[in-house]
Nucleic acid binder design. Structure first.
Length: 424
RNA sequence: GGGGGGGUGGCCGAGAGGCUGAAGGCGGCGGUUUGCUAAACCGUUAUACGGGCUAAAACCUGUAUCGAGGGUUCGAAUCCCUCCCCUCCCGCCA
């Protein structure tokens, strides 16, 4: 969410930001309306506060007279009239602020100047690692996974519906191995605090990270408690310090959390649905960082490297893609996608998306820090990225390490976790 | 699920319709004093949103904020209603 001041003081910057995202045409009316409503709001605030000041003065005077045992009926009548007026004005102010809020919530973050303009055709591959294996003779992961008894999609659909997976036998153990491997590396080598978050969160939390109100249809909700199943650990972990003021020397903060992620995937039917590439429930290790305005840029580089490091250690060929403005997520100011090569599917699979939200998320979640003693609090910069998502990584492992006889070699780093060299 | 006790500033803790943005203490910051450390004493100590002044601050000024939201009242931390959270006891439960 933007500071409402952008509507007053940085309107050109805002317009340009929307232009670079390619959404200026759609959002121009919203911005114009927002600008007008922002002015309206200030006029109303002045009107209300003027009357409140009068009312307060009258109340003081009433108190004084009462103490002196004097009559104050005339003042009381004045105060009552003012009260009525204030009530009306406040109602107007309320609806004006609601409208302003709606407008602000519709405007996405302004991407950094270093982010290319335009849509996904302008995405840039900025880094490549490893040699993608040729697809010839490589079976897709769903075939291999089924054959090795690791993945059972048919029975999952019986038990839960389409878009769910049973991991079984070595498949289940592989999930557990990845979990431990990811967490160990990020905690021991990259210095993250390990967090095990709740998977059900309340409405304020979902609103804090921007899942609500706009994307309520994408989330699973509980029937009786107004709780939501998290779509990513980003939600509970970023909200850890919601409504708090942190000390400057506690920054940067870095958290790594494993969680199940629950997504209805409303509207994405038919896209990447084969195998385990898009399911309603999947596992992910998420990296979350709180930074200052000064160092969030380098923090994004560090976080992205941490995620890449996992893929390198697994030996999976991958690339880093800087997303163009139009392809960058709503709240993000800059995003790198990490894509791993799946030779069986014959596609680059997004296994991580690393973003710097600048203060956009923190303003909404009200997470601040005090830069120095006696200084005014400022919003932190929040960052997050997968480190990494399990199902697509599993797909890549099953395909990249596939042997001619249908078995799959286990990447070196996973052998101690998996207790075997080969999946057969 | 049933019953009790609570939520006040960075923290602890008073206050029970007006003189309370909030006593007192701790902590923080600034200062005075003292060979150093320490102590003592004095001062100071929130956030948000407006307005004025400004290049921008500082500053001045208004409003709001005592878990959240409504209500009563000329006036609410204080009274009423709804909700949330914490805590204790009983029941149930992995």
């Amino acid at each position: 969410m933007h500071d409402l001041r952008v509507l007053r003081e940085q309107i050109d910057l805002l317009r340009d930001g929307m232009r670079r995202r390619g959404v200026l045409d759609t959002l121009a009316p919203v911005i114009d309306r927002g600008q007008a409503v922002e002015r309206e709001r200030r006029t109303l605030i002045q009107a209300v506060e003027e009357r409140k000041a009068q009312r307060n003065a009258i109340a003081q005077e009433v108190a004084k007279r009462k103490r002196a045992k004097e009559d104050a009926d005339d003042l009381i009548a004045q105060g009552r009239a003012l009260g009525d007026e204030i009530g009306q004005l406040e109602q107007e102010l309320g609806s004006t602020e609601a409208e302003l809020n709606r407008a602000l919530l519709e405007i996405p973050n302004i991407t950094f100047a270093t982010v290319p303009e335009g849509g996904e055709e302008n995405n840039v591959i900025v880094r490549e690692w490893g040699t993608p294996r040729a697809s010839a003779g490589v079976k897709p992961h769903w075939e291999i996974g089924a054959k090795l008894g690791m993945i059972d999609i048919e029975r999952a659909s019986k038990v839960s519906g389409s878009g769910f997976v049973f991991y079984r036998g070595k498949g289940a153990r592989l999930v557990r191995a990845l979990l431990n491997f990811f967490m160990d590396v990020h905690r021991d080598e990259h210095g993250y605090e390990e967090v095990w978050p709740p998977l059900l969160v309340n409405r304020s939390t979902m609103t804090g990270t921007g899942q609500l109100p706009k994307f309520e249809d994408d989330a699973y909700a509980t029937r009786t408690d107004d709780l939501f199943l998290i779509p990513t650990a980003e939600v509970p972990v970023t909200n850890l310090y919601r409504d708090e003021i942190l000390e400057a020397d506690s920054l940067p903060m870095a958290f790594v959390a494993y969680s199940k992620c629950f997504r209805r995937e409303a509207g994405s039917a038919g896209k990447d649905t084969r195998g385990i590439l898009r399911t309603h429930e999947f596992d992910k290790v998420e990296l979350v960082r709180y930074a200052t305005q000064e160092n969030s840029g380098e923090q994004l580089e560090a976080l992205t490297r941490h995620a890449e490091n996992i893929l390198e250690r697994l030996g999976i060929p991958h690339r880093r893609k800087l997303l163009a403005a139009g392809d960058t997520g709503f709240s993000s100011a800059m995003t790198y996608d990490l894509e791993a090569w799946a030779p069986g599917v014959g596609a680059w699979l997004e296994v991580s998306s690393c973003s710097n939200f600048a203060d956009y998320q923190a303003r909404r979640a009200n997470i601040r820090y005090r830069p120095g003693k006696g200084e005014k609090p400022r919003f932190v910069h929040t960052l997050n990225g997968s480190g990494v998502a399990f199902p697509r990584t599993i797909a890549c492992i099953l395909e990249h390490y596939q042997n001619a006889d249908g078995t799959v070699s286990v990447p070196d780093v996973l052998r101690p976790y998996l207790g075997t060299d080969v999946l057969s």
